[in-house]
Amino acid sequence: MDVITQGTLPLLSDPDPEKARAVFKKKSRSMTPKVMSASTAVERFVHPGDYLVVGAFGAVRIPTVILHEIVRKHITGLKFGGHTATHDCQILSAGHAFDACDIAYVIGLEARGLSKISRRHFERDDVEVIQWTNAAMAWRLKAAAMGIPFLPARNMLGTDTLEYSAAKVVRCPYTNHPLVLLPALYPDLAIIHVHEADIYGNSRIRGILVADEDLARASKKVIVTCERLIPHEEIRRAPHLTNIPYYCVDAVVEAPFGSYPGNMPGEYFSDEDHLRLWLDKGKDEQDFEAFFKKYVLDTADFDAYLQLCGGLKRMQELRRLEMLPDENGRLDPDQTNGQAN
């Protein structure tokens, strides 16, 4: 298969499955308890230079609890896989945590608008950027989860997105049509927030999976944060509900409301007022530094942040909102949170 054309930018991670196998060969298979605090998990498993991918999508089911810990510990020099990274990207940008990024979607917060915080980080800190797409990032993780060096696909072709990526185009040996080869992405570290996990890391996700099943399998280290720990017997009772098996997982952090201000499907809706506050504060640099110091850098832990944001009372409001209280399945007109912008 001769290369017809290729992207002009470098790979931020090595797609060689032999090197990945050498790492996975040494990965522990023993089912041991892995529960620890967010602080310990970050100390042990997040290192400058690591390639990091955050689970789920946008501000949905993100592991905010660990992202705060990363910036509180002033970890920098990460490489970041930005597959629809919105509030997660914003937090890491505020902490100047990464200096290179595989981009599918960053800077924006979807319908909420653009983040000046993320934009400042990318533009001013001269972050190295490589272009990809959401499907490309998902399939790069799929290739790694399969233990192969690339997957062929039919996206990205003919565009500047391909030109400014590290993908290659070959002629298909079966059909003779051009095909893009998406290089496997084996992250050094994945952080994934789930609904339930046992103490060994067997994990359950409700709602959309995005790329998390592949992400957990593709990554050399995995931190799982969960809304709640459940008994191991419960996993054994219903194995068809397990999305991530224990052998992928290196740390389990129990973190109720750990995705706040994100949306945790079936648990709580996103806190749109608080996300709006981040975007508004982000417009003025000094304003934001004070806000960021108060809400993130100077808080002892994630619980202190939740308290600052209204504590259990606010969390219950967001839980009620998630349940769509109106009998028609529509929000009460007085409860515009989550919808207004």
Partner: peptide, 28 residues
């Protein structure tokens, strides 16, 4: 069956009374 406008392509409203909650790989 969308009860209201989703604010994210992945928020809970996008699977409200849906037929399938799946992965990006599956959709793409």
């Amino acid at each position: 069956i969308l009860p209201s406008m989703p604010i994210s392509v992945g928020d809970s409203r996008t699977t409200h009374k849906a037929l399938l909650a799946t992965s990006m790989d599956d959709i793409m």
